[in-house]
Amino acid sequence: MSLTADEVKKIAYLARISIQEENIEQYSQDLSSIFGLVEQMNAAATDDIEPMAHPQHAMQRLRDDVVTETTDIEHREKLMSNAPARQDGLFLVPKVLD
């Protein structure tokens, strides 16, 4: 298992993580060795095994359709206080084009 520089760049973009050109080789090595470890799974026969998505066998609990929270302007201030950029009660981001 060996990841190419292009694959690393593609993954980094999918994950929206900038990586420096000079670190790509290191990432490629690290990821390759991690997937080398991961591929030890291939030794196990699992054809008839039911995948286990979760440690719990329970079913989803449902909540009643009740409005339990109201966010007034004051509470909004608190919830937005960590925002890097905001104005008029909105979060601001670089221009979205579509």
């Binding site: 909540r63 359709d65 009740v66 409005v67 339990t68 929270e69 109201t70 966010t71 007034d72 302007i73 909004r76 919830l79 937005m80 008029d88 009660g89 909105l90 979060f91």
Partner: peptide
């Protein structure tokens, strides 16, 4: 519905921005 799919916030339309969004 009155409340959101996964939270107890109101789904009411046309409110002040970000006043119908909880944590």
């Amino acid at each position: 519905t009155r409340s959101k799919l996964f939270s107890g916030s109101s789904t009411e339309y046309g409110q002040e921005p970000n006043t119908q969004a909880n944590v």
